[in-house]
């Protein structure tokens, strides 16, 4: 009988632990996907590399720099040696960790328009909406942009 209790306990503990571990990963992974910032000038794909989340530019409304007539590059990077880095594929969200319920933090956001990197925290307000808050030192000194999730038209139709 004792064995039966032990077995039941083992199964229960493992199931609960598993569901916790599994659900945490799944919760964190909800950040993955394609997102559009409010300015609509770019689309950002967030992926996981190692244990952290990174977002790269996969689409630009204006991929060609009107000044140079060539594909846009990171011309405002404070590191002059990297100014020819192409913006397409550029990782502007870096090093995000799932730190709290619906919140990813400890990361940074880079603004290619002025070459500045800001501390950043991401809050998922619903499955398809992110509050991206870039700030300087303290969160009060910041600005929030709302990003919306994008998906394939076919995926929507099939739902």
């Amino acid at each position: 009988m004792n064995r039966a209790i032990l077995v039941a306990l083992l199964v229960a503990v493992s199931t609960i632990t598993y569901s916790f571990l599994g659900s945490d990963d799944a919760k964190a992974d909800r950040l993955k996907g394609i997102w559009q910032p409010s300015h609509g000038k770019a689309k950002i794909k967030i992926d996981k590399i190692g244990s952290k989340y990174y977002g790269k530019i996969v689409w630009l409304k204006e991929p060609i720099d009107p000044e140079t007539k060539a594909p846009k590059v990171d011309k405002n990077n404070p590191d002059e040696s990297l100014r020819s880095t192409p913006l397409k594929g550029y990782r502007i969200l870096k090093d995000f960790e799932y730190t709290d319920e619906d919140e990813w933090s400890n990361g940074t956001i880079y603004d290619p328009e002025n070459g500045s990197t800001y501390s950043c925290v991401i809050k998922m307000t619903d499955e398809n909406t992110l509050d991206i808050r870039g700030y300087i030192g303290i969160k009060t000194l910041g600005r929030t942009d709302v990003w919306k999730r994008l998906e394939m038209p076919s995926k929507k139709k099939s739902e």
Partner: peptide, 18 residues
């Protein structure tokens, strides 16, 4: 963990999920 392969041509025609 690696990123998925990237087909950049699909990003032109995306819709908002909402």
């Amino acid at each position: 963990t690696a990123e998925d392969e990237e087909d950049y041509s699909i990003y032109d025609d995306l819709d908002f999920a909402d």
